[in-house]
Amino acid sequence: MAQEVLLNVENLVVSFDTDRGKITPVNGVSFQVKRGKTLAIVGESGCGKSVTSLSIMGLIPGANGKIEGGAIEYDGQDLLKFSGTQMRKLRGDKIAMIFQEPMTALNPVYTIGNQIMEVYKLHREMSKKEAFDHALAMLEKVKIPDPKQRMREYPHQLSGGMRQRVMIAMSLACNPDVLIADEPTTALDVTIQAQVLDLMKDLQTDLGTSVIFITHDLGVVAEVADDVVVMYAGDIIERGTVFDIFKDPKHPYTQGLLDSLPKSSDTKNEELQAIKGMVPSLFDLPQGCRFKDRCALAEEACGESSPELEKFSDTHEAACFVTSRNNAA
């Protein structure tokens, strides 16, 4: 059965004008999100994950950002051609996004109930009573205990995990086709993280939402994702199914990320292999492969030109000269 592509990002390039010059934190990124599936975007801090998701939401350009090229197709329409008003109507209705800071993402002066009801006011014609009932139903869906009581409470009365549940309730209120979750559990305790992840999985199955799950934690990816793209300094350097990435990582960076994961089987404190070195500054990118300064396999050729994504199977691609050569041999 062919899987329907709901969201198609094609060669997206985003730049920012800063005091120190122009940077391109998203440099030709392509990926597809299939209906009802989860795509994980993985990468270290600063590699362009949030900029990519804000581009999809139509919130770039901000003050200094610009989409230089590419296309973002949702359900067959190019979102980059949408007007501001068209995009605003899509946001929160068809495409929603939650992000990292559950502690500060709710408005401190309104009750939880009012904030969820506001989403319906923005997107649906309904009476106050109906909005209230829908909001209450959403709180039940995200498994908040005592939802009637919580409706009347203010954000500061809720824990971080509860607030993130409220954020999830708000983002799913209008039953969007796509939910972008930008590190939704990073700020939470480990046990709460697991609960929120479980909740998101359940809701996704329930509602059939497509999810873009952004994280720097490959451990989480294994639990939630169907497909994975790995980003490094604005480029996608590897993509594949979750099986491809975990069983047969091709790119030295992906391998490094996997090696730095704690394995549940080792009980001894075997040293984790963190990738040495730092992400290069966007103001001062190396020539050729952007990973070369940290790469154990780097050769002279790596400094001369940038590797392109190459197919290893129908679903699996990576951008590395050495891997491609070894594979051909």
């Binding site: 605003r88 929160g92 929603a96 992000f99 983002s171």
Partner: peptide, 12 residues
């Protein structure tokens, strides 16, 4: 963040 969150939900 609360303003970004509202914007992401479609607030004008």
């Amino acid at each position: 963040e609360y303003v970004l969150a509202a914007r992401l939900l479609g607030a004008n």
